[in-house]
Amino acid sequence: MNSVGLEEVLAWLREAAARIEEQKEYLTQLDSAIGDADHGINMNRGFKAALERLEANPPEDIAAALKSVAMALIGKVGGASGPLYGTMFMEMAKAIDGKERLEAADVAAAFRAGIDGIKARGKAEEGDKTMIDALEPAYAALQEAVASGAGVGEAIAAAADAAARGMEATIPLVARKGRASYLGERSAGHQDPGATSSHLLLAAAAEAWGS
């Protein structure tokens, strides 16, 4: 796939919601080890609400769809991940405002804006054992694929693979942000639930936009 339009973006969001529902027990289980055992429950509630919103008020364009998801996540997820993912979708919407179709470079620019939004809100950096540890490597891979002339499908697949590696690399890390940080050294040895849900979102895009 060389570019994506509203149809493909909606297909991604549906795939993402389905994967989160499927993995909600797993996400919650990861969270109970180092957090407060609600990440899967909260994310599932948020993405369900996002799909309902999109169905009730069909969006006019891609930006409207992303904004609608942002508002659903902000209003329904709670905890820290609601505002963080909500901010990511809101910033992505702003970055591609008015575009009918997204080339690989547009996807990369939107993704960059989304990550910057999360970092501005959550003040996390790579290595803090957060969603950033999956998202930053994913962006680097996406950017590299775009530079070498890859289409959207190929680029997002590379990003999803990099996110998976980043997610796994959170296991030995000691958390420096969020509720897991109160555990100090005891947070090492567990995969970060936020990095895991970030990987799910990218894997869903790779599935939906696969060439």
Binding site: G78, G82, L84, R179
Partner: peptide, 11 residues
């Protein structure tokens, strides 16, 4: 000062 409270109130 709890991460969730702080982020939601900031928004």
């Amino acid at each position: 000062n709890y991460t969730g409270d702080v982020l939601n109130f900031e928004m």
